[in-house]
Design a protein around this nucleic acid. Sequence first.
RNA 1: GGUUCCGUGGCCGAGUGGCUAGGCUGAGCUCUGCAAAAGCUCCUACAGCGGUUCGAAUCCGCUCGGAACCUCCA
Length: 501
Amino acid sequence: MNLFDQYPVSLTNSLTGNKEVFQSLNPGFIGMYVCGPTVYNDVHLGNVRTFLTFDIVSRYFRFLGYKVRYVRNITDVGHLENDADEGEDKIAKKARLEQLEPMEVVKHYTEGFHEVMRQFNILPPSIEPSATGHIVEQIEITKRLLEKGFAYESNGSVYFNVRKYNQEHHYGILSGRNIEELMESGRDLDNQDEKRERIDFALWKKASPFHIMRWPSPWGDGFPGWHIECTVMSTKYLGETFDIHGGGMDLKFPHHECEIAQGTGATGKRPVNYWLHSNMLTVNGQKMSKSLGNSFLPRELFSGTHPLLEKGYGPMAVRFFMLQSHYSSTLDFSNEALQAAEKGYKKLMNAFNLIKKMESVPAGKPMSELNAEFKRLSEACYLTMSDDFNTAKTLAVLFEMSARINDLKSGNINLAEIDQPVFDSFKQTYIGFIEQVLGLQEEKEENDEVLRGTLDLLITLRKKARTDKNFALSDKIRDDLKKIGIQINDGKDGEMTYSIE
RNA sequence: GGUUCCGUGGCCGAGUGGCUAGGCUGAGCUCUGCAAAAGCUCCUACAGCGGUUCGAAUCCGCUCGGAACCUCCA
């Protein structure tokens, strides 16, 4: 039996607002699309949270045995400074300010984005298409929407006709918005405007003579609108209807609403079965965002140079911190919370290292109670993750498991009291969930041969001192090492381990 | 104003009708030459008011407070 049949996943579908049991379109396969970054700027921690959320989603689905095609785009054209289809293109603006070719800007920030993803151990998607690589397709779908009457041309630009669309379909289905109110709100259109309604949005924008990012089209030189790229790239690689579409909560309206309208308008089919939205990272209760100026850059976090931080934190401690809350809740970012997370993370990894070295032994006298507990814990990992990817609950289970691992280590319980298959599955589950599902790994420690050799020598000396009952010397070695951030721990049989701060 | 959501113990943060979340902090105990680590125990909460129910942090209503979206942001 497949793991995904054994532990069916339920998830909160933003389209219905309900938690639903997930069922893939093609048994055993999942198509997932996530809105990637607009590469005109450095990614901050808020962005990281979203990509982490969907990293977990894809990791867990794969862990359960699904074959996942995960598409995450790079927006490198068409994202204007505001959504009234006015203002400069973000990439073009940055290029102008920096006196660079737009594609230089794109390249630079794409590289930076990838670097950050690697640091946080966020796996790359299966396909990472870019908007500029799909201009032809975007023109094609725009033509199709024109043919179907869901779009109109105006002065070299093409706009989506929301009013017309809403006569046959439901615009606002995702965000719960009322189209009448949407049409009334906002300022009135003046004669200069190309759009018929405020809520109509651009599929294609005419390029001014000075606009450097431009492509020929049936309507003259121009560039694509922001929303259309996602419709094109998702359907091209995943089909006209696919399983999961994800993104940050702030993209729900208008971006995802427009995607639904475009896809439905073009194909007559509903483009996505399950919409998943991750919530915001906040600082003092307020959304972390570039425009509010409260955003943290990953490098400021690692180095601890941000004014709000007392010290630096490793990417894995931060990853752990984010996993302690559910993706659908806001998560507040603070120095204290990070410190607590760092300690918890270390505790979990300590047990991780211990169990990796443990081997099951034939059960001498199986204790049914212990067996039952070990079984229950292993199974609980799957149940909590299958419950809407509840990483917080899963971590709670893993902490319980780590307590049992420490019990085994310290001899509070005996390995021989647990049936071999039960322990093997326990071990496999603990390691699998930490490493593969949650993507936690050891922080890269200085793997300095010289340092390790020196420490081994000091440990040998300290062991000698202890057997000689020269406690003054053994304490000095330990205390002095502690001062420079190295903790010596004495084990049961005189063996010693160390950890570096 | 409209749409959506939240308010949990010293802090962070799960939990959506009955059963211990968990992490961090603090106190104590065990282990230890002494520490550290680890294990155990304790400090035990659901913004306020009313209602439904045998029973509510969990459902409903109101009040207060906060947030996101409706303008660019994951």
